[in-house]
Amino acid sequence: MADESVAIVLTVNGRRWELAVPAQRLLVEALRDDLGLTGTHVGCDTSQCGACVVLVEGRPVKSCTMLAAEADGADVLTIEGVARADADGKTVLHPMQEAFRDCHGLQCGFCTPGMVMQAIALVETADGPLDEGDVRQALEGNLCRCTGYQNIVKAILEGARRMGRPVMASAEEAV
């Protein structure tokens, strides 16, 4: 039974992969172990911490709680895929990554890939202007064990601005 593998096709960060995976292979395992994309982290492995958040068809998912086979045919975006190369081939960080750097939105950095992916999903799917409350709600499933939430929230609001999304100023940012 264990050798029963499933043939799947994943498009990860724009590159197409054909894989044969065991049925029980999790998406995060396929990304990290099969594709070597270790930017996506496994924190709790119980769907609580959000370190493993990636975008599947543009939606945030916890890749530790999705079978790789369930992503068959899907477009997957991981932290490795958000930066761009400029005309000279130099890496240009995603505005959200830059905002995390500029606002000191990371301490140990372990939760950061999931935070950034969740933040990008929030900004890209928001109906209207974002405020601090929206950001805090969106982070319901992302834990930072350094407890560096203040600057993470600040970074996401700044990242949203840089992505062209209207942001409502809040008391938070005046600190």
Binding site: G50, V56, V61, T65, M66, A138, E140, G141
Partner: peptide
Amino acid sequence: IGDPAVRSR
């Protein structure tokens, strides 16, 4: 329900 990632799935 849950959090945004849980609501996606």
